[in-house]
């Protein structure tokens, strides 16, 4: 392979500069600001502030409510990630086998991808309306007195449901293209070795899909942690009340609703550290075991 290179040292830096400036302005600068704010308690209008050291952090560490939200976020992330990936994989495998009308079928499975999270949340709100939502009626008909916004578990179930519904199409697209890139010869060879389609899937197809699966795992965890904000916000109708919420939503509630800049900054710093740790963990430990073809 021919190795391409730059003749001058400054050209690559110059070409990178726009991107670096954007990262600096929109990421490093606010991040540094958040770290600084997290050590202060500041008047919302910016008139007074006191340096409080690690008070904002110890306050969070001692808060049973914050621990509760963290636990919920963990559970929520696991459920959303698992169901989004599992459902998408099933749909992709099935869609891969369909020959007649394949395009229509695939398009129908994909179109939800175009729905923005707050809109998805709003559709969930309509479907699960306490008085006349069709899905709430369905739940009631099987004896589940579904009450969105009243019952913690019901609201949590609604959040998982809408978040999964919104994410399945993305995963579906990736899994489907992953399946289609598996060489035909490999599949035919497998057909000779194993008669059971179940065994063929787990022994041949699934390992070959692993790189796609790993990539999607990262994407889905990030999605469940951060991008579900719109879904959560719409489903709790802007009123946190006794509803479940994720850590990201808590940052918003304290900072943008409650105007507690110090406390909210400390929470966002914690999330930054979490993301950093997660990234290191995923790429160090998991990626090593994934075989890329």
């Amino acid at each position: 392979m021919k190795r391409a290179g730059f003749t001058t040292r400054w050209l690559p830096i110059l070409l990178l500069l726009p991107q670096l400036v954007i990262i600096a302005v929109f990421f490093y600068w606010p991040a540094a600001h958040a770290v600084q704010s997290s050590f202060y308690l500041e008047d919302p209008f910016g008139f007074g502030s006191s340096f409080v050291g690690f008070d904002n952090y110890t306050h969070l560490a001692q808060s049973s409510e914050y621990a509760r939200i963290a636990k919920f976020t963990l559970l929520f992330t696991i459920l959303v990630t698992f169901f989004s990936l599992a459902l998408a994989l099933v749909l992709a495998v099935k869609a891969d086998n369909v020959i007649r009308g394949a395009k229509t079928y695939r398009t129908l499975l994909m179109w939800v991808y175009a729905v923005a999270p707050p809109v998805a949340g709003f559709i969930g709100l309509l479907m699960l309306n306490q008085t006349w939502g069709p899905l709430a009626e369905l739940a009631k008909s099987v004896g589940w007195d579904f009450k969105l916004g009243v019952n913690f578990a019901d609201t949590a179930a609604a959040m998982v449901l809408v978040s999964v519904w919104k994410q399945v199409p993305v995963n579906f697209i990736f899994f489907l293209s992953g399946l289609q890139s598996i060489p035909k010869s490999v599949r035919e060879a497998a057909l000779i070795d194993a008669k059971s389609s179940f065994r063929r899937f787990w022994d041949v197809t699934f390992p070959l899909l692993a790189p796609t699966g790993f990539f999607l795992l990262v994407i889905n965890i990030t999605y469940a942690l951060f991008d579900t904000f719109g879904v959560v916000d719409v489903l709790v109708k802007g009123e946190p009340g006794n509803n479940p919420m994720t850590l990201v939503y808590k940052v918003y509630v304290d900072g943008f609703r409650g105007n507690d800049i110090g406390g909210s900054s400390a929470q966002s710093v914690i999330l930054m550290v979490l993301v950093l740790a997660l990234t290191i963990f995923q790429f160090r430990l998991i990626e090593r075991r994934i075989h890329y073809t």
Binding site: V150, P240, N242
Partner: peptide
Amino acid sequence: GFYVQIRDVMNREFGRILTGE
């Protein structure tokens, strides 16, 4: 001060009272 959050705390706890938590 921070009364918006104090109201949020009340709403949270009242919701828990009324759902038996």
